[in-house]
Write a protein that binds this DNA or RNA. Structure first.
Lengths: 250, 250
DNA sequence: GAACTATGTGTCAAACAGACACAATAATAA
DNA sequence: TTATTATTGTGTCTGTTTGACACATAGTTC
């Protein structure tokens, strides 16, 4: 999906689209930003098309900024979806075309291969806004069974699979947590992505051993019981860990 | 590049291509299969276009089989290259078009985004064969500085980077070595991909701990000095390791 | 103020990684 | 035929990391 009434199919390359799985973390749950399509009320991933002079990364940035209001989002290509039948069951979009809501909608009838991006964002900073084809932009639990169009459910699952794998050799959190956070919050994030529980004490030891955290002299007040210390990421080391990887067998 | 004189641009989707980085291992060196273009004598990766009813994976399989003679090759998408300028410096292909060697060559003047695949093959089983646009198909050392067209040198480097990363959480070798191989050969493969030396004894201990090897009651004769034992991969465990990963931090 | 619950810190044994020693083998040189 | 030599097979030692678990501490709840 792309922005507003200014959509002109002439601006874009045929057959190529992109879809963004935008992950956020809130209340101990992993969320995905979704759009609800006008008329059919089915759900879709934020997506768009490739401008004639754009890189895919630029196009994804454009989409991400339009839907979240944020610039400089952490994102990564993770897979191209090219099944020729992936857009055939496209009842939702066909219905939309039939409404005649836009003169250029026949563009959507073509076959598209879609490049999947996943993005990690700070939930609290996102201002979700729908695009021309949708009436609502909202967070959904990553596991929630909702009527997604096309192969978008599959795209979400693949993104999560890749994210999980990356967790074992790359740090994660800078893009998903507020600036200051507690160790239990960071642990909950890891547990949520991995889908299993971790030992509190061993988790802390390991995270600290990566040297990517700065412990602050502040505690998080207001919660129940003993107030935990706040941490922030050490950006220099975090960046280094992103480039070089965390451990690995060889 | 695609096969023979039967090329018809109508069979393919506009703007989408794929390039294959085909890795082989021979004489302790990591090789890449290349094509030498007719007329300009520059080098290119084996590649092709996406048929109107094909998945990208099918298209890659087609290309791989045409260039190597092999079916069932291990391969993986690793990145999409979408810089709008990536085909602008396309002197080689422009020259080819100017020869009028094929009526349909103006197809190549369009902008293409290319999906990169890497493939791992048994060097000894490959029968390299050029395509319609090239006069030679040959192995090159992965580090060799040769005049590659477009961004193909960059594509190779990226493929190697991804391969290296995968080495730390996935087994490699089944697709690159003959059925029976020695421990020193396997080690040399790892060292070549990683670009650094490993301790012989620690390497063996680690590989055996993965349980993906069957030690045979045979030794490799003919070499100099003490003859090493032969091993084969335990396919069941190898497959399991591919799916589940080898170690990892979490 | 007592009870409670989550956090901060520490211990222990088992598994693992990195560095290195020595014996065995088969081709080569004498 | 025998000694030499390069390579392979196997093992040890030490320091580090991991996984399982115990106890003290701080702030809320009753």
């Amino acid at each position: 999906m792309t922005d507003s009434g200014t959509f002109k199919s002439d601006d874009f390359l045929d057959h190529i689209s992109l879809d963004c799985v935008i992950f956020g973390f809130h209340n101990g749950e992993l969320k995905v930003l979704t759009l609800r399509l006008k008329y059919t009320k089915e759900f879709a991933l934020p997506g768009g098309f490739l401008g004639k002079e754009e890189t895919l990364e630029d196009a994804a940035k454009r989409v991400l900024q339009e839907r979240t209001g944020l610039k400089d989002i952490f994102m990564k290509q993770f897979k191209v979806f090219s099944d020729p039948d992936r857009s055939k069951t496209n009842v939702a979009i066909q219905d939309l075309i039939n409404t005649g809501a836009h003169p250029d909608l026949h563009f959507f009838e073509k076959r598209f291969i879609s490049v999947g991006f996943y993005a990690l964002v700070d939930f609290t900073k996102v201002k979700p806004s729908p695009d021309f084809f949708s009436d609502k932009c909202e967070w959904k639990n990553v596991n929630e069974q909702a009527p997604y169009i096309l192969d978008h459910k599959k795209i979400i699952e693949k993104a999560l699979e890749v994210l999980r794998r990356q967790l074992s050799y790359q740090p994660i959190g800078y893009n998903l947590l507020p600036e200051k956070f507690t160790m239990p919050e960071l642990q909950k994030l890891y547990e949520t992505i991995l889908g299993r529980e971790l030992d509190r004490r061993n988790f802390q030891r390991k995270m600290l051993s990566y040297k990517i955290l700065n412990k602050l002299d502040e505690r998080k007040k207001g919660g129940a019981y003993k107030s935990p210390f706040l941490y922030e990421f050490n950006l220099e080391n975090y960046q280094k860990a992103l480039n070089e990887g965390l451990s690995g067998s060889f």
